[in-house]
Design a protein around this nucleic acid. Structure first.
Lengths: 194, 194
DNA sequence: TAATGACTAAAAAACATATTTGGTCAATAA
DNA sequence: TTATTGACCAAATATGTTTTTTAGTCATTA
Protein backbone atom coordinates (compact mmCIF):
# COMPACT_ATOMS: atom_id res chain seq x y z
CA UNK A 1 0.00 0.00 0.00
CA UNK A 2 1.13 3.53 -0.70
CA UNK A 3 2.60 5.49 2.16
CA UNK A 4 0.07 8.34 1.96
CA UNK A 5 -2.84 5.90 1.91
CA UNK A 6 -1.77 4.09 5.08
CA UNK A 7 -1.01 7.36 6.79
CA UNK A 8 -4.49 8.69 6.16
CA UNK A 9 -6.08 5.41 7.26
CA UNK A 10 -4.19 5.66 10.53
CA UNK A 11 -5.22 9.28 11.00
CA UNK A 12 -8.82 8.36 10.28
CA UNK A 13 -8.81 5.57 12.86
CA UNK A 14 -7.00 7.72 15.40
CA UNK A 15 -9.51 10.54 14.94
CA UNK A 16 -12.35 8.24 15.92
CA UNK A 17 -10.71 7.19 19.17
CA UNK A 18 -9.28 10.57 20.16
CA UNK A 19 -12.56 12.36 19.60
CA UNK A 20 -14.50 9.68 21.47
CA UNK A 21 -12.20 9.01 24.43
CA UNK A 22 -9.69 11.89 24.45
CA UNK A 23 -5.92 11.68 24.34
CA UNK A 24 -5.12 9.67 27.47
CA UNK A 25 -7.86 7.05 27.22
CA UNK A 26 -6.96 6.21 23.66
CA UNK A 27 -4.30 3.51 23.25
CA UNK A 28 -2.01 2.90 20.33
CA UNK A 29 -3.01 -0.77 20.39
CA UNK A 30 -6.66 0.11 19.82
CA UNK A 31 -5.84 2.31 16.86
CA UNK A 32 -3.70 -0.39 15.29
CA UNK A 33 -6.22 -3.14 15.96
CA UNK A 34 -8.99 -1.08 14.33
CA UNK A 35 -7.11 -1.06 11.00
CA UNK A 36 -5.89 -4.68 11.35
CA UNK A 37 -2.23 -3.78 11.58
CA UNK A 38 0.48 -4.36 14.14
CA UNK A 39 1.22 -1.54 16.55
CA UNK A 40 4.73 -1.14 15.21
CA UNK A 41 3.45 0.24 11.94
CA UNK A 42 2.14 3.32 13.71
CA UNK A 43 5.69 4.09 14.74
CA UNK A 44 6.91 3.65 11.21
CA UNK A 45 4.68 6.54 10.10
CA UNK A 46 4.62 8.63 13.27
CA UNK A 47 7.36 9.30 15.77
CA UNK A 48 5.10 9.15 18.80
CA UNK A 49 1.52 9.18 20.07
CA UNK A 50 1.76 12.94 20.39
CA UNK A 51 2.84 13.36 16.78
CA UNK A 52 -0.09 11.24 15.65
CA UNK A 53 -2.47 13.30 17.77
CA UNK A 54 -0.83 16.39 16.34
CA UNK A 55 -1.59 15.11 12.85
CA UNK A 56 -5.20 14.43 13.77
CA UNK A 57 -5.58 18.00 15.00
CA UNK A 58 -4.01 19.43 11.87
CA UNK A 59 -6.37 17.40 9.72
CA UNK A 60 -9.44 18.42 11.73
CA UNK A 61 -8.33 22.03 11.54
CA UNK A 62 -8.18 21.92 7.79
CA UNK A 63 -11.69 20.50 7.58
CA UNK A 64 -12.95 23.14 9.97
CA UNK A 65 -11.15 25.95 8.18
CA UNK A 66 -12.79 25.13 4.87
CA UNK A 67 -16.18 24.91 6.56
CA UNK A 68 -15.56 28.27 8.18
CA UNK A 69 -14.75 30.05 4.95
CA UNK A 70 -17.91 28.64 3.38
CA UNK A 71 -20.06 29.94 6.24
CA UNK A 72 -18.45 33.34 6.36
CA UNK A 73 -18.87 33.86 2.63
CA UNK A 74 -22.40 32.53 2.22
CA UNK A 75 -25.04 33.97 4.56
CA UNK A 76 -24.02 37.58 4.94
CA UNK A 77 -27.30 38.88 6.25
CA UNK A 78 -27.80 36.82 9.38
CA UNK A 79 -24.16 36.49 10.29
CA UNK A 80 -22.85 39.95 9.58
CA UNK A 81 -22.83 41.21 13.17
CA UNK A 82 -21.44 37.99 14.41
CA UNK A 83 -18.75 37.91 11.76
CA UNK A 84 -17.58 41.38 12.65
CA UNK A 85 -17.29 40.48 16.27
CA UNK A 86 -15.81 37.10 15.60
CA UNK A 87 -12.97 38.48 13.51
CA UNK A 88 -12.07 40.82 16.37
CA UNK A 89 -12.11 37.97 18.82
CA UNK A 90 -9.70 35.96 16.69
CA UNK A 91 -6.91 38.23 17.81
CA UNK A 92 -8.18 38.77 21.32
CA UNK A 93 -8.57 35.13 22.29
CA UNK A 94 -5.23 34.15 20.87
CA UNK A 95 -3.18 34.95 23.92
CA UNK A 96 -5.79 33.73 26.39
CA UNK A 97 -5.83 30.30 24.83
CA UNK A 98 -2.11 29.84 25.23
CA UNK A 99 -2.79 29.88 28.94
CA UNK A 100 -6.09 27.98 28.88
CA UNK A 101 -5.88 25.83 32.01
CA UNK A 102 -8.20 23.01 31.09
CA UNK A 103 -6.62 22.43 27.73
CA UNK A 104 -3.17 22.56 29.24
CA UNK A 105 -4.18 20.10 31.93
CA UNK A 106 -5.58 17.68 29.39
CA UNK A 107 -3.03 17.84 26.64
CA UNK A 108 0.16 19.55 27.69
CA UNK A 109 0.50 18.35 31.26
CA UNK A 110 2.82 15.51 30.57
CA UNK A 111 3.57 15.93 26.88
CA UNK A 112 5.35 18.91 25.46
CA UNK A 113 4.11 19.76 22.03
CA UNK A 114 6.06 21.94 19.69
CA UNK A 115 5.06 25.56 19.55
CA UNK A 116 3.26 25.56 16.23
CA UNK A 117 0.86 22.88 17.44
CA UNK A 118 -0.20 25.18 20.23
CA UNK A 119 -0.82 27.84 17.63
CA UNK A 120 -2.99 25.46 15.65
CA UNK A 121 -4.84 24.47 18.77
CA UNK A 122 -5.54 28.08 19.57
CA UNK A 123 -6.97 28.53 16.12
CA UNK A 124 -9.01 25.38 16.57
CA UNK A 125 -10.79 26.81 19.59
CA UNK A 126 -11.37 30.18 17.98
CA UNK A 127 -13.05 28.53 15.04
CA UNK A 128 -15.03 26.10 17.20
CA UNK A 129 -17.96 28.42 17.83
CA UNK A 130 -18.70 28.95 14.18
CA UNK A 131 -18.80 25.25 13.61
CA UNK A 132 -21.10 24.72 16.56
CA UNK A 133 -23.41 27.31 15.10
CA UNK A 134 -23.45 25.56 11.77
CA UNK A 135 -23.88 22.07 13.12
CA UNK A 136 -26.76 23.20 15.27
CA UNK A 137 -27.80 20.43 17.62
CA UNK A 138 -25.23 17.90 16.52
CA UNK A 139 -22.63 16.75 19.02
CA UNK A 140 -19.41 18.77 18.91
CA UNK A 141 -15.92 18.03 17.70
CA UNK A 142 -12.86 16.86 19.55
CA UNK A 143 -13.01 17.73 23.26
CA UNK A 144 -15.82 20.21 22.89
CA UNK A 145 -16.58 19.84 26.58
CA UNK A 146 -13.21 21.35 27.42
CA UNK A 147 -13.72 24.51 25.46
CA UNK A 148 -14.39 27.77 27.27
CA UNK A 149 -18.04 27.40 26.42
CA UNK A 150 -19.27 30.25 28.57
CA UNK A 151 -17.76 32.75 26.18
CA UNK A 152 -19.19 30.83 23.26
CA UNK A 153 -22.66 30.73 24.79
CA UNK A 154 -22.55 34.46 25.41
CA UNK A 155 -21.82 34.95 21.71
CA UNK A 156 -24.74 32.73 20.77
CA UNK A 157 -27.13 34.66 22.96
CA UNK A 158 -25.82 37.93 21.55
CA UNK A 159 -26.65 36.71 18.08
CA UNK A 160 -29.96 35.13 19.00
CA UNK A 161 -28.76 31.67 18.10
CA UNK A 162 -30.40 28.66 19.73
CA UNK A 163 -28.18 26.97 22.32
CA UNK A 164 -27.27 23.43 21.20
CA UNK A 165 -28.38 20.59 23.47
CA UNK A 166 -24.91 19.67 24.62
CA UNK A 167 -24.31 23.20 25.91
CA UNK A 168 -27.63 23.68 27.67
CA UNK A 169 -26.43 22.50 31.08
CA UNK A 170 -23.68 25.09 31.02
CA UNK A 171 -26.17 27.69 29.91
CA UNK A 172 -28.62 26.90 32.72
CA UNK A 173 -25.80 27.18 35.22
CA UNK A 174 -25.09 30.80 34.44
CA UNK A 175 -28.31 31.81 32.72
CA UNK A 176 -28.80 35.20 34.37
CA UNK A 177 -25.14 36.15 34.24
CA UNK A 178 -24.89 35.25 30.58
CA UNK A 179 -28.04 37.16 29.67
CA UNK A 180 -26.76 40.19 31.53
CA UNK A 181 -23.38 40.14 29.80
CA UNK A 182 -25.02 39.49 26.46
CA UNK A 183 -27.27 42.52 26.65
CA UNK A 184 -24.22 44.60 27.52
CA UNK A 185 -22.37 43.37 24.46
CA UNK A 186 -25.38 44.06 22.28
CA UNK A 187 -25.62 47.57 23.66
CA UNK A 188 -21.93 48.07 23.10
CA UNK A 189 -22.20 46.94 19.48
CA UNK A 190 -25.12 49.27 18.89
CA UNK A 191 -23.16 52.17 20.33
CA UNK A 192 -20.20 51.41 18.10
CA UNK A 193 -22.42 51.46 15.01
CA UNK A 194 -23.56 55.02 15.51
CA UNK B 1 -15.78 28.53 81.93
CA UNK B 2 -18.98 29.97 80.50
CA UNK B 3 -20.57 28.15 77.61
CA UNK B 4 -20.54 31.10 75.21
CA UNK B 5 -16.88 31.83 75.94
CA UNK B 6 -15.72 28.29 75.13
CA UNK B 7 -17.90 28.18 72.04
CA UNK B 8 -16.33 31.32 70.62
CA UNK B 9 -12.83 30.08 71.46
CA UNK B 10 -13.57 26.92 69.50
CA UNK B 11 -14.96 28.89 66.56
CA UNK B 12 -11.90 31.12 66.62
CA UNK B 13 -9.52 28.17 66.54
CA UNK B 14 -11.56 26.40 63.89
CA UNK B 15 -11.59 29.49 61.68
CA UNK B 16 -7.79 29.55 61.59
CA UNK B 17 -7.55 25.97 60.43
CA UNK B 18 -10.50 25.99 58.00
CA UNK B 19 -9.33 29.16 56.30
CA UNK B 20 -5.75 27.89 56.08
CA UNK B 21 -6.31 24.27 55.05
CA UNK B 22 -9.96 24.05 53.97
CA UNK B 23 -12.64 21.73 55.29
CA UNK B 24 -11.20 18.31 54.54
CA UNK B 25 -7.61 18.93 55.55
CA UNK B 26 -8.61 20.31 58.93
CA UNK B 27 -8.95 17.74 61.73
CA UNK B 28 -10.97 17.97 64.89
CA UNK B 29 -7.90 16.87 66.87
CA UNK B 30 -5.93 19.87 65.64
CA UNK B 31 -8.66 22.29 66.62
CA UNK B 32 -8.93 20.78 70.10
CA UNK B 33 -5.16 20.64 70.61
CA UNK B 34 -4.82 24.32 69.65
CA UNK B 35 -7.06 25.35 72.56
CA UNK B 36 -5.60 22.75 74.97
CA UNK B 37 -8.80 20.77 75.33
CA UNK B 38 -9.80 17.18 74.68
CA UNK B 39 -11.50 16.45 71.39
CA UNK B 40 -14.69 15.36 73.14
CA UNK B 41 -15.41 18.90 74.19
CA UNK B 42 -15.96 19.93 70.59
CA UNK B 43 -18.81 17.45 70.43
CA UNK B 44 -20.30 18.82 73.60
CA UNK B 45 -20.75 22.20 71.93
CA UNK B 46 -21.22 21.14 68.30
CA UNK B 47 -23.04 18.15 66.90
CA UNK B 48 -20.53 17.49 64.13
CA UNK B 49 -17.61 18.85 62.14
CA UNK B 50 -20.07 20.21 59.60
CA UNK B 51 -22.02 22.08 62.23
CA UNK B 52 -18.81 23.65 63.50
CA UNK B 53 -17.82 24.64 59.98
CA UNK B 54 -21.31 26.00 59.50
CA UNK B 55 -20.85 28.14 62.59
CA UNK B 56 -17.50 29.41 61.31
CA UNK B 57 -19.12 30.48 58.06
CA UNK B 58 -21.95 32.26 59.82
CA UNK B 59 -19.47 34.14 61.99
CA UNK B 60 -17.31 35.15 59.02
CA UNK B 61 -20.40 36.30 57.15
CA UNK B 62 -21.38 38.61 59.95
CA UNK B 63 -17.92 40.18 60.03
CA UNK B 64 -17.97 40.61 56.27
CA UNK B 65 -21.48 42.03 56.22
CA UNK B 66 -20.55 44.79 58.65
CA UNK B 67 -17.42 45.58 56.67
CA UNK B 68 -19.49 45.75 53.50
CA UNK B 69 -21.98 48.25 54.87
CA UNK B 70 -19.12 50.45 56.03
CA UNK B 71 -17.53 50.47 52.58
CA UNK B 72 -20.76 51.07 50.70
CA UNK B 73 -21.67 54.01 52.92
CA UNK B 74 -18.29 55.70 53.13
CA UNK B 75 -16.53 56.40 49.83
CA UNK B 76 -19.35 57.35 47.48
CA UNK B 77 -17.24 59.09 44.87
CA UNK B 78 -14.85 56.37 43.81
CA UNK B 79 -17.21 53.46 44.31
CA UNK B 80 -20.47 54.86 42.98
CA UNK B 81 -20.41 53.15 39.57
CA UNK B 82 -19.24 49.96 41.08
CA UNK B 83 -21.87 50.05 43.80
CA UNK B 84 -24.64 50.50 41.25
CA UNK B 85 -23.48 47.53 39.28
CA UNK B 86 -22.71 45.45 42.32
CA UNK B 87 -26.21 45.80 43.74
CA UNK B 88 -27.64 44.57 40.45
CA UNK B 89 -25.32 41.63 40.49
CA UNK B 90 -26.41 40.62 43.97
CA UNK B 91 -29.66 39.38 42.47
CA UNK B 92 -28.16 38.11 39.25
CA UNK B 93 -25.46 35.96 40.79
CA UNK B 94 -27.78 34.39 43.30
CA UNK B 95 -29.08 31.65 41.08
CA UNK B 96 -25.73 31.01 39.41
CA UNK B 97 -24.09 30.42 42.76
CA UNK B 98 -26.55 27.75 43.77
CA UNK B 99 -25.16 25.76 40.90
CA UNK B 100 -21.54 26.77 41.37
CA UNK B 101 -19.68 23.57 40.59
CA UNK B 102 -16.43 24.15 42.41
CA UNK B 103 -18.07 25.15 45.66
CA UNK B 104 -20.43 22.22 45.46
CA UNK B 105 -17.54 19.87 44.81
CA UNK B 106 -15.60 21.16 47.79
CA UNK B 107 -18.26 21.46 50.42
CA UNK B 108 -21.43 19.68 49.44
CA UNK B 109 -20.03 16.60 47.80
CA UNK B 110 -20.16 14.37 50.82
CA UNK B 111 -21.93 16.52 53.38
CA UNK B 112 -25.45 17.79 52.98
CA UNK B 113 -25.87 21.16 54.56
CA UNK B 114 -29.24 22.56 55.35
CA UNK B 115 -30.73 24.93 52.83
CA UNK B 116 -30.24 28.18 54.70
CA UNK B 117 -26.50 27.57 54.94
CA UNK B 118 -26.35 27.42 51.16
CA UNK B 119 -28.13 30.75 51.08
CA UNK B 120 -25.55 32.18 53.46
CA UNK B 121 -22.78 30.76 51.36
CA UNK B 122 -24.21 32.35 48.25
CA UNK B 123 -24.27 35.68 50.00
CA UNK B 124 -20.71 35.09 51.19
CA UNK B 125 -19.44 34.79 47.64
CA UNK B 126 -21.41 37.76 46.40
CA UNK B 127 -19.90 39.93 49.09
CA UNK B 128 -16.39 38.54 48.61
CA UNK B 129 -15.37 40.96 45.88
CA UNK B 130 -16.01 44.05 47.92
CA UNK B 131 -13.89 42.68 50.70
CA UNK B 132 -11.07 41.90 48.30
CA UNK B 133 -11.20 45.45 47.05
CA UNK B 134 -10.94 46.81 50.57
CA UNK B 135 -8.19 44.49 51.72
CA UNK B 136 -6.15 45.36 48.64
CA UNK B 137 -3.13 43.10 48.40
CA UNK B 138 -3.84 40.98 51.48
CA UNK B 139 -4.50 37.30 51.04
CA UNK B 140 -8.19 36.46 50.73
CA UNK B 141 -10.63 34.80 53.05
CA UNK B 142 -11.81 31.23 53.29
CA UNK B 143 -11.38 29.40 49.98
CA UNK B 144 -10.86 32.52 47.94
CA UNK B 145 -9.19 30.47 45.23
CA UNK B 146 -12.51 28.75 44.51
CA UNK B 147 -14.38 31.93 43.81
CA UNK B 148 -15.41 32.76 40.26
CA UNK B 149 -12.60 35.27 40.11
CA UNK B 150 -12.81 36.02 36.42
CA UNK B 151 -16.06 37.89 36.91
CA UNK B 152 -14.56 39.65 39.90
CA UNK B 153 -11.47 40.69 37.95
CA UNK B 154 -13.62 42.06 35.16
CA UNK B 155 -15.40 44.22 37.70
CA UNK B 156 -12.09 45.45 39.06
CA UNK B 157 -10.85 46.43 35.62
CA UNK B 158 -14.14 48.16 34.89
CA UNK B 159 -13.68 50.24 38.00
CA UNK B 160 -9.97 50.87 37.51
CA UNK B 161 -9.07 49.02 40.68
CA UNK B 162 -5.61 47.50 41.00
CA UNK B 163 -5.64 43.70 40.73
CA UNK B 164 -4.48 42.13 44.03
CA UNK B 165 -1.36 39.96 43.88
CA UNK B 166 -3.15 36.70 44.53
CA UNK B 167 -5.42 37.27 41.50
CA UNK B 168 -2.75 38.37 39.06
CA UNK B 169 -2.12 34.92 37.62
CA UNK B 170 -5.78 34.59 36.74
CA UNK B 171 -5.72 38.07 35.27
CA UNK B 172 -2.72 37.38 33.04
CA UNK B 173 -4.42 34.25 31.78
CA UNK B 174 -7.36 36.08 30.26
CA UNK B 175 -5.94 39.57 30.02
CA UNK B 176 -7.16 40.45 26.54
CA UNK B 177 -10.57 38.84 26.98
CA UNK B 178 -11.10 40.62 30.28
CA UNK B 179 -10.08 43.97 28.86
CA UNK B 180 -12.42 43.49 25.94
CA UNK B 181 -15.38 42.58 28.12
CA UNK B 182 -14.55 45.39 30.51
CA UNK B 183 -14.62 48.05 27.85
CA UNK B 184 -17.97 46.73 26.72
CA UNK B 185 -19.39 46.98 30.21
CA UNK B 186 -18.01 50.49 30.57
CA UNK B 187 -19.61 51.46 27.26
CA UNK B 188 -22.86 49.91 28.33
CA UNK B 189 -22.87 51.81 31.60
CA UNK B 190 -22.18 55.05 29.75
CA UNK B 191 -25.06 54.38 27.35
CA UNK B 192 -27.43 53.72 30.23
CA UNK B 193 -26.49 57.05 31.81
CA UNK B 194 -27.64 59.11 28.84
C1' DT C 1 -22.67 20.75 83.98
C1' DA C 2 -18.31 20.69 81.70
C1' DA C 3 -14.52 18.05 80.39
C1' DT C 4 -11.68 13.84 79.66
C1' DG C 5 -9.42 10.32 76.88
C1' DA C 6 -9.61 5.52 75.65
C1' DC C 7 -12.23 3.32 72.13
C1' DT C 8 -14.48 2.14 67.45
C1' DA C 9 -15.70 1.97 62.71
C1' DA C 10 -14.78 3.89 58.61
C1' DA C 11 -12.04 6.54 55.61
C1' DA C 12 -7.56 7.71 53.88
C1' DA C 13 -2.75 6.85 53.19
C1' DA C 14 0.95 3.82 52.37
C1' DC C 15 2.69 -0.14 50.49
C1' DA C 16 3.14 -4.07 47.51
C1' DT C 17 1.78 -6.56 43.43
C1' DA C 18 -0.31 -7.15 38.83
C1' DT C 19 -1.60 -5.23 34.48
C1' DT C 20 -1.53 -2.00 30.81
C1' DT C 21 0.66 0.77 27.56
C1' DG C 22 3.99 3.78 24.81
C1' DG C 23 7.79 2.79 22.45
C1' DT C 24 11.81 -0.35 20.48
C1' DC C 25 13.95 -3.53 17.45
C1' DA C 26 15.53 -7.70 15.24
C1' DA C 27 13.32 -10.56 12.01
C1' DT C 28 10.67 -10.94 7.86
C1' DA C 29 7.63 -10.20 3.92
C1' DA C 30 6.78 -7.52 -0.22
C1' DT D 1 14.87 -1.12 0.05
C1' DT D 2 10.39 -0.44 1.94
C1' DA D 3 6.70 -1.86 4.79
C1' DT D 4 5.09 -4.81 8.50
C1' DT D 5 5.30 -7.87 12.36
C1' DG D 6 5.05 -9.13 17.21
C1' DA D 7 7.82 -10.33 21.15
C1' DC D 8 9.96 -7.49 24.42
C1' DC D 9 11.02 -3.65 27.89
C1' DA D 10 10.54 0.11 31.17
C1' DA D 11 7.46 3.06 33.03
C1' DA D 12 2.97 4.27 34.15
C1' DT D 13 -1.41 2.79 35.83
C1' DA D 14 -4.51 -0.10 38.19
C1' DT D 15 -5.60 -3.38 41.82
C1' DG D 16 -5.41 -5.44 46.12
C1' DT D 17 -3.72 -5.44 51.02
C1' DT D 18 -2.09 -3.54 55.21
C1' DT D 19 -1.41 0.42 58.24
C1' DT D 20 -2.54 4.80 59.93
C1' DT D 21 -5.57 8.57 60.65
C1' DT D 22 -9.74 10.62 61.97
C1' DA D 23 -14.82 11.74 63.00
C1' DG D 24 -17.59 10.59 66.38
C1' DT D 25 -18.98 7.91 71.00
C1' DC D 26 -19.33 7.12 75.82
C1' DA D 27 -18.34 5.66 80.46
C1' DT D 28 -15.95 8.17 83.90
C1' DT D 29 -14.66 12.17 86.54
C1' DA D 30 -14.20 16.80 88.65
Amino acid sequence: MKEIEVKSIIVESATKFFSKYGFYKTTMDEIAKQIHKAKGVLYYYFKSKEELFNEVLKHELNVIKSELSQIVNSDKDSLIIFKEYFLTRLKLLHKALNYHETLKADFFEKYHFVKDVREDFAEFERIQLTIILKKGKKEGYLEVKNINSTVNIIMMVVNGIEIPLFLQNKYAEYETTINELSSMIVNSLRTQKK
